[in-house]
Design a protein around this nucleic acid. Sequence first.
DNA 1: TGTATTTTCGTGGGCGCACACGAAAATTTT
DNA 2: AAAATTTTCGTGTGCGCCCACGAAAATACA
Lengths: 395, 395
Amino acid sequence: MQTTGWFFFTCIHSCRPTVSADNYYSHRFTRYIVVRNKPVHNHSGKARIKDIAERANVSPGTVDRVIHDRGEVSKKTREKVLRIIRELDFQPDVVASTLASKKSFRIAVLMPRADRSSRFWESPATGMDDALNEIGHFGVRMDHYWFDYFDRSEFVRQARQVLQNKPDGVIVAPVFSEEAGDFAGKTIQHSIPLVFINACIAQQPHLAFVGQDAQRSGMVAAKLMYFGLGDKPVLIVNFIHKKGNQAHILEREEGFRKQYISNNKKADTILHSLQIDTASQTLVNNILGETLKDRPDIQGIFVTNSRVHRVAAFLEKVNRQDIRLIGYDVTKENKVFLARDTIDFLIGQQPWEQGYKSVMALFNHLVLKKEPKKTQHLPIDIITRENIEDYHNNK
Amino acid sequence: MQTTGWFFFTCIHSCRPTVSADNYYSHRFTRYIVVRNKPVHNHSGKARIKDIAERANVSPGTVDRVIHDRGEVSKKTREKVLRIIRELDFQPDVVASTLASKKSFRIAVLMPRADRSSRFWESPATGMDDALNEIGHFGVRMDHYWFDYFDRSEFVRQARQVLQNKPDGVIVAPVFSEEAGDFAGKTIQHSIPLVFINACIAQQPHLAFVGQDAQRSGMVAAKLMYFGLGDKPVLIVNFIHKKGNQAHILEREEGFRKQYISNNKKADTILHSLQIDTASQTLVNNILGETLKDRPDIQGIFVTNSRVHRVAAFLEKVNRQDIRLIGYDVTKENKVFLARDTIDFLIGQQPWEQGYKSVMALFNHLVLKKEPKKTQHLPIDIITRENIEDYHNNK
DNA sequence: TGTATTTTCGTGGGCGCACACGAAAATTTT
DNA sequence: AAAATTTTCGTGTGCGCCCACGAAAATACA
């Protein structure tokens, strides 16, 4: 890749007109003339179907049939062609191929819509759009099937729609893990490649998973908390809707606990865990208020998802900004409290990248025929008041 | 983008054979027949050169000449064609265009080689390679012009080489800002688009800058330091080679100071700054040893570049791991100390992304004819022992 | 051995665009 | 008004691959 530069370029342009010695074969009867001493590759340095055909003494059509496994080729020729393909390391020209086939790929995206309760899913969607913009020329199309983050039945309905429409590839956010598992199973049956975004159902076969290592993100949070607090007691808050199924949120707590305990030299570190199943600020205030009355020694709070702004609002209300607060995701609400330093750190999931990379994974598979990395863990971003602007800048 | 899905796809495939009603024009004399009521777009939904030609009553060749501003078109026809192009919102098909033109673009990359003193530049190179892999089909080539990070004259020599070879686009790491400024000026003269990577010379016109906001990264470091230390004195260490010119490294210190002071409520925060111009560990030990003897109250050290591992080694030697240590970049050496918690945080620059995005910026400009974002600030990564694995995972 | 099938293959016409070539129209010169 | 230029334009070929069509070769059957 380093040495193909200037000289080579000159060569391309000056030599081209004289090199194209095509049509070595002309008729079925005369068969093909094997041209010895002819360079393996044509001027562009890459073997073409025509080159293969010449070498194999067959027509381009036959080579094409072999390449696409379209049958109608005798075993013997097939093998000869395959051998030569390997010999010349033939790689079909994606550009020409796209142009000729005019085939278009449809990617179905099954993910929560961004609503007032959380705008989180806006960013992945943007990332997907941006990716599509770069590769749309290859005939890749995208269809969105949105569902409400808390509406299990809508998920199921939309999933059914997706299957009915038989897309060429699927991206799914497995918010409801059981139903998503079913869905994943079915895509496999139809041999539709599937990419998990944001969370993963490891048991189900999939083309790729793009998202964060939940447990490790919890560990990072613990690290930050410990850095600021040392061996002081910490409260963990899970906002979990009882109908939702958020395995990866629990993993975050697990990671946090593991790390925090291992950091602490003293044995009496107190980690208190709290489940809150409500969106009402008043109720949150009550619950937290009582908890803090019970344990006035609590110096830090870790919230395992983006609803950390609820806790922040509470802390400001009771004037306890001294308590260290760490949560997830750069949302509009959280940004306000981060700016005021009530929230100390947010853990970011690089949502834009998640969208971008999921599309790219499918693109690589469908168009370029290259297998993407199966697990694409995104960096765990730590967002502070100071770096938040960059975070959104180029997304 | 959302609504082109299934139905449309069906349409493409079932309608295609019957739609292609070409050759509406046949001879110069008969002129072209204006077909009324014919749909604006062809079956694929996008206008082609041929469609323009029909509408304008000219031949495809003429349209082509207009599109490429190749002259030989009367003013009147030219304007008519342009009007119709706008009307139909014609966008040339990049795929077909690439295939037909067989033009190749050469990107010249002028950046430091990764050597034993720092492997940092390995990652951007990888990112570039990976990007090239995705877009190489469009005839994009890349040539590297490496220089030694400390060798100003080699930079100049290589820069001259680049200009001599007249590439179609340039990516440069402006390590020596004066010389890089000259170079940038010259690329402009030759109207070669230029992308700054890692650091930027804002005065020079450029297509894009991909890198970090240096000052803000210093602020983040300060935030972390303050989170752990509160109002305690901190030492800032700059490893600056006197011959090098690293404006952005000084910006990091500036950002750190600004933030640290604003965080502190007390006025007596001590920030002590130290310049070290040597690679020798022994000398580093001596200098740091004396400094710490002078000011035993120092509780944290901020190192403004990747040579933080020197300080870490010292701290371990004198058994002062209690001192908080923050530096830059995930290098092999730094990783060791991060794993042992001697280094508390590393600030990452997403080097892989820097490489990837610089190439993509040029690709967008050269091939897709879309202007990339001019300033692409990457997120400021905070790397801890806990999240370091992900950081390298998919790069 | 001759005919009907089935298998295996070659050919040709695109895909949308770039570009060279030469011919027609417009303009200038005699 | 005819000839010589210059300007403007249409046509044809090809980029590398896909795919439909039909024809030749191989096999089966009578």
